[in-house]
Amino acid sequence: MSDDEQHQHTFEQAGAGASTTYPMQCSALRKNGHVVIKGRPCKIVDMSTSKTGKHGHAKVHLVAIDIFTGKKLEDLSPSTHNMDVPNVNRTEYQLVNVDDGYLNLMTNDGTAKDDVKVPEGDIGKQIEQGFEEGKDLLVTIISAMGEEAAISFKEAPK
């Protein structure tokens, strides 16, 4: 094998390098921040730190709500350990149409986005009702760890 051959690699797939999560020390987490518990992106609603015991570290008790399902999750971790924090993005889209349980949305630059489901519950009903009344609606989409959902909406300023 020549020197040139060992340096020729073929990469089947290359990502942009953007990770869905990043590490953060437990003691640096804050209420209303985000954290990954049991593989789910969550918003921290309560946290408490226990004192260091006879053997070991201070522990951080986290109570958080899954940002997509609304389920309450809890975790206990040493304050010096790292936990994953999800990269959470909020984006506003113009509502174009409601079609077969999906929202047809448009970005500011005119790109179509039609893979977001109408949210369940009151928000979904209010979005559909507002659209049927002919209102111009802006829908806020939250995305994290490869999932996304509509979380709120408002009427577009005229």
Results as ranks from 00 to 15, higher is better:
Lys43Ala: 09
Leu76Ala: 14
Glu5Lys: 04
Asn97His: 15
Val98Glu: 13
Gly110Pro: 00
Val116Met: 11
Val45Asp: 07
Glu128Thr: 14
Ile127Asn: 06
Asn89His: 12
Asp66Tyr: 09
Gln25Asn: 01
Leu138Val: 03
Leu73Cys: 05
Ile44Glu: 01
Gly39Lys: 15
Ser2Trp: 07
Ile141Leu: 09
Ile44Thr: 02
Asp109Ala: 14
Asp99Leu: 07
Asp122Ser: 12
Ser48Asn: 08
Lys72Gln: 10
Ala156Gly: 02
His57Phe: 09
Lys125Gly: 03
Ala112Trp: 02
Val96Asp: 03
Gly70Ala: 10
Val36Lys: 01
Thr91Ile: 04
Arg90Glu: 10
Ser143Tyr: 08
Glu120Lys: 10
Lys51Ala: 09
Thr49Tyr: 14
Glu148Pro: 00
Pro157Gln: 11
Met83Val: 05
Ile44Pro: 00
Phe131Asp: 06
Val35Met: 06
Ala64Leu: 08
Lys51Leu: 09
Arg90Lys: 14
Ile151Thr: 15
Asp84Asn: 10
Glu148His: 14
Lys54Cys: 03
Asp109Pro: 00
Gly33Tyr: 07
Asp114Glu: 07
Ser77Glu: 13
Glu148Ile: 00
Glu148Val: 00
Asp3Lys: 15
Met106Ala: 07
Ile141Glu: 08
Glu147Cys: 02
Thr69Ser: 13
Lys31Leu: 03
Gly121Tyr: 10
Glu120Phe: 10
Leu95Phe: 06
Glu155Asn: 05
Ile65Glu: 13
Ser2Tyr: 09
Arg90Ser: 09
Thr140Leu: 10
Gly17Pro: 08
Val36Glu: 06
Val35Glu: 05
Gln13Ile: 05
